[in-house]
């Protein structure tokens, strides 16, 4: 268990140190519309509504952040 936690931190540290190297001018790919966490709102609302009315589970659709991180 302890080893697992250390391993997880190990992996996470790569992510976080990797993260800090993405500078504002390097976010061209992340700014692409197809890379957004939330897709096209109209399309999303349609599908969510359909699934909502047919299945018991719902929620957790909202998301924020991402994009070009422009100022």
């Amino acid at each position: 268990m302890k080893l697992l936690i250390i391993k997880l931190c190990f992996v996470a540290s790569f992510f976080t140190s990797g993260c800090s190297s993405v500078e504002p001018w390097e976010r061209g790919n992340l700014a692409k519309p197809e890379m957004q966490i939330s897709g096209d709102a109209v399309d999303d609302l349609l599908l969510e509504q359909v699934f909502y009315s047919k299945e018991a589970a719902s929620g957790g659709i909202g998301a924020a952040g991402g994009g070009c991180g422009c100022n």
């Binding site: 302890k2 080893l3 250390i6 391993k7 931190c9 190990f10 540290s13 790569f14 976080t16 140190s17 990797g18 800090s20 190297s21």
Partner: peptide, 19 residues
Amino acid sequence: MYSYMKLILIATLFFGPSF
């Protein structure tokens, strides 16, 4: 095994961000 990992872990956390 862990001590190496710990060392690298600490190193990446401290020196990871580039200045």
